[in-house]
Design a protein around this nucleic acid. Structure first.
Lengths: 196, 196, 196, 196
DNA sequence: CATGAATGAGCCTTCATTCAT
DNA sequence: CATGAATGAAGGCTCATTCAT
């Protein structure tokens, strides 16, 4: 009811974002009320406004943060790798790993795109496109060097991304399938398809 | 202001469902208000209740309808086809075709699962599983006959479905890519992967 | 708590406007809450919105109504009177009478001008100007015919209006001074000043 | 962001009062938030409380200050003038001058009377009455000496004050009418009325 | 069947004020 | 003195739903 002794501003900020991710992931942005969020963090609803500008702003922050991190990390991951095949494998491994670790962010980042105000949505979509371009780039280079056989780069990139991103909706880190195995299965599928 | 002359009950029903699909697809279930829906159909909000039981009920109806149709049609499509490869191709073609034609239903059917009350969600999830099983079944049979090389049937089925379903979010029937081409690209990708 | 049997929409509308006048007059527009207003009318706060569009809209309606009536009535009053002196007397008598009868409207109409949104304020200010012009016109004609001695028509019109409007803040119909007497005092003051 | 280098306590005090006058004049007391006020002065909202007791207190201070000054100045102005006519002229000239110079204070002093708590309001109303009495006194003496012809002293005093105070709402020091001219016009109007 | 008006709950947000640092 | 973060109350408004007419 009263604030925890050590809860400085930074900590509260973090707690709000964390609780926000949880609630939006579980119920959706519209369905989450700031009252719920506040209760989760141990604040009065109005006190949230010492840390966020608006509910919309919180959503944007969460998604934007995620997208920026995603881009930084994929670039770090691909750095120094040259052969398209290796790059593709690295992309798949990274994408799956990140999507397992940040299930909520990823899910929110795509499911709640429509909850963003147009101005905000535009910015996020641009970042998404940038990320997609990392994959398109790999496919293109690979195709140009006759390593890959790609009918349509854009469509294939979308298709692969959709496949890899899909795990957010069902993957359970504590389940039957380990991370390594998951990566192997998807890598095989993407590289060689289902045919023998 | 008043209802269109000829709009009998059945027509109003249909108009409500149609407008519901539009609005939920565009804004999400929570963000759609029954006032909006009523306005779209040319009714007062209260009058909707002559045609629907509750807002939740409308959502369930929409999704349930879609799932039942989906199952009926896939079964009709696969009927008489025996070889796993042919069945897989038929599945891919059907799934894409249906997802192009019923973009809104499909999208709502997965994005708004979380807006369903537990009881309703359970029923829909069961139908989804049944649909997924059509694909798992094909993969399994194909693997058993050494036609396919599948590391993990369940994971592969999810992955393929995610890939195929992804088109809902970007495919434009009037765009650069035709339906036929779309099917070819995806079929190739699933069967053979990207490697040459 | 529940709605009165006969309270049709029109009656509720009227009750809201009446209560609105009371509360805004007594406390000011900002200080009046819609919860208060609703309680006064015997409604839940949200139910007000079946009758008003927004709080701002209610204010505008109230003031606009008043201004339109004011203009209609002064024109009716002056109609058929030609001599400037008679017109001036008629103006004074009417203005005082109206301001006694509609104390609240008049007070709100000037005190809450600043609470109107710019767009609304502009419209009201135009109506006010039109009313002021009735007086300026009289003064001008009187001066042209050498009946009045006016240094500056605009300033004099403002001054006279301010004097006449001032009674809203203190006049009590049940007090020591009767309406007739009030009119006489002001007429004398305006026509001849304080000097003997 | 941080306070201006040299802003000592006294300076801050003054800045708060100045900003308060501005904001209350422009938006009304209720509509002005202490956050706005703080921003205007370059402080955080909480810091205001090192300089004011409460928001209500600030309003009272502003008005009280104004009333006290008004009384001191009118008394200084009238001191040594004996003939009622001269005293009346002096009153008119002073009142207009002061109301031009302190538009905001004067306006707030009457428009925000209703925002004062009863206890505070009472005190201010007493001061107002004292000021009004200066005028009533002049009128009374003048009437007793058969210099003025006054039907009702109280009503006439209110009427004259209303007229003179009205300029706050429209007078623009940079406009067409100079201060001297304004005084002449009003003096003439009050002394002789509009008739030739 | 449709309407208009009502309910009651809830929503995002703002605000004056307090107080440990 | 100033700050940052909190409180608790309240505010305007929207909504799904109900029901007499």
């Amino acid at each position: 009811m009263s604030r925890t002794a050590g809860s400085s501003g930074k900590k509260t900020q973090a707690a709000i974002r964390e609780a926000g991710l949880d609630l939006i992931y579980a119920q959706g942005f519209d369905a989450m009320s700031l009252r719920q969020l506040a209760a989760r963090v141990g604040l009065q609803p109005g006190s949230l406004y010492n840390h966020i500008a608006t509910k919309q702003d919180l959503l944007y922050d969460l998604i934007h943060n995620h997208m920026v991190t995603l881009l930084e990390r994929i670039d770090a991951e691909l750095e120094g790798i040259e052969p398209p095949l290796d790059r593709l494998k690295a992309f798949i491994a990274f994408h799956l790993t990140y999507h397992i670790e940040r299930k909520r962010e990823v899910f929110i980042g795509s499911a709640e795109l429509r909850s963003l105000e147009p101005r905000n949505r535009k910015k996020i979509v641009a970042l998404r496109r940038a990320y997609e371009d990392r994959l398109s780039g790999i496919l293109e280079t690979g195709a140009a060097r006759k390593l890959f056989k790609i009918d349509d780069v854009a469509v294939s990139a979308y298709a692969i991304l959709a496949m890899l991103t899909g795990i957010c909706t069902w993957y359970d880190p504590k389940g039957r399938i380990g991370r390594k195995e998951l990566i192997d299965i998807h890598t095989r599928l993407i590289l060689q398809g289902v045919l023998k």
